[in-house]
């Protein structure tokens, strides 16, 4: 991956980070209600697709660390949860892509696993600190499940345009 496209990927990732919060705010009342919570995960979606569809690049791991730190800084002030979750996901996908053919189904499946791992990991981290009082059953039914459904549908819709864009960048690199 050349430098220009790595910068492009980083900019889109940062936009994804901001979009997650902006959508949560603009969509409050629909995405966040007393009955359910949907956490938009555009940044995670982009990291999953880039890691899976672009050639293996060690810089992606550092990009994920940086974005995780900014995510922690901006959204909670507790530094560590996303700073470790994002690079762990990138590392896992870099390992898994060696065994998987390139296909939309696998891309969405990897994203599904990423959401489960990140959302659950961050939930247990917060529970450990006494931040967030949702019980485990409530978390699965009111947070994890709606988050998975909405984000997987979004991933299905965005796979084709993302794949086309990344294929072009792959060729240009």
């Amino acid at each position: 991956m050349d430098r220009r496209h790595f910068i492009d990927i980083s900019i889109v990732a940062f936009l994804g980070l901001l979009l997650d919060g902006a959508l949560s705010f603009a969509g409050q009342g629909i995405l966040i209600t007393p009955q359910w919570q949907v956490a938009p995960s555009f940044l995670l979606l982009w990291l999953t697709f880039v890691t899976y569809l672009m050639p293996s690049d060690g810089r992606l791991l550092w990009l994920a660390v940086g974005l995780g730190i900014v995510y922690d800084f901006y959204y909670s002030g507790i530094i560590g949860f996303y700073a470790i979750a994002f690079p762990a996901i990138v590392y896992g996908i870099q390992w898994a892509r060696e065994y998987l053919p390139i296909s939309g189904v696998y891309a969405v499946l990897l994203y599904f696993i990423s959401i489960v791992v990140v959302t659950s990991g961050v939930y247990f981290g917060h529970r450990f600190l006494g931040v967030g009082g949702e019980g485990f059953v409530g978390f699965v039914s009111q947070v994890l499940w709606p988050t998975i459904v909405v984000n997987v549908v979004v991933a299905g819709l965005l796979y084709v345009p993302c794949n086309r864009l990344l294929a072009r960048w792959r060729v240009e690199s």
Partner: peptide, 15 residues
């Protein structure tokens, strides 16, 4: 003005 809200709303934080 509110600019953003924590996506995974564990702590009910907004900016």
């Amino acid at each position: 003005s509110v600019t953003s809200r924590q996506p995974a709303d564990w702590e009910n934080i907004f900016m």
